[in-house]
Design a protein around this nucleic acid. Sequence first.
DNA 1: TATTGTTATACTCTATAACTATA
DNA 2: TATAGTTATAGAGTATAACAATA
Lengths: 154, 154
Amino acid sequence: MSAHGSLELSRQLRPLLTRVYQMVRRRSPGWDISAAQSSVLTTLMDRGALRMGELAVIEGVRMPTATSVVARLVKLGLVERIADPQDRRAVLVGITARGSAQISELVAERNARFAELLARLSDEERRLLRAAVPAMAHLVALDIAPKDPADTEL
Amino acid sequence: MSAHGSLELSRQLRPLLTRVYQMVRRRSPGWDISAAQSSVLTTLMDRGALRMGELAVIEGVRMPTATSVVARLVKLGLVERIADPQDRRAVLVGITARGSAQISELVAERNARFAELLARLSDEERRLLRAAVPAMAHLVALDIAPKDPADTEL
DNA sequence: TATTGTTATACTCTATAACTATA
DNA sequence: TATAGTTATAGAGTATAACAATA
């Protein structure tokens, strides 16, 4: 019944989200690592060492892609490949101390840059954004939830 | 003085924006055109025909990149190159009827998919998101504004 | 035989450097 | 000489198909 309101909200909100995303991402000079690379690093930071296949699934890419991104990160000394003792076919990919340090810096820098923009809003505007955070978090959680027909009631 | 609150808000909001962006973008099967291509099409849709160099600036890419993206779109019949009568060095790039139709469809599809997610939130959550829209719009506008020292007071 | 990864190949997006054509 | 754009070349990210090694 609220489908109409949702579509209208989608029309307003979606382009804005795209723009804000690009603001924070695209103009980030001085960082040598790419979006794909920083995504892998944050994943490994959050979840610890992962098998190549798991990493590919989480990143939403195919295995050959994961292999090549990891290969470049290894060359940069930011991740390492570890043989899996349980299964000799498998490879564990882990972040190195240097990778860890670098991604922390990058995240801090992005947050700082976004914060500068937020600081230029009014107190009221910031309050409204803050109030919307839990709803956004819920939205993000929805995406992870399985989309089986059985889960339609979620 | 509100710098601290901004940084905290940035920490909460920025990762969520990234995730939502990816939800809407990445899992969009059945669309042959790439992100760079759809971005060019929406730009041409919004602003009409542009010179190659203007397009490159707006898209935030170098001219050779614009040239190649446009070349592929021309091959797909979605944009056309028009000689500029005023300056024979220049090229005007315009969207075709087919390009126009295709981008409208794509935008509608993305909005619909995002709306489905929004529809799964509570009325209250949607209300909070709606209330945050003007602040987000302001945020986006800030990025466009020049960053000269003189404009610091904006 | 099935699973885990890698290699081979190809396409898009991106950049810089060198070039052409016009102002 | 300066500007608008293209071509040449290279590297990153992505994919599919074919392969190797292990379970």
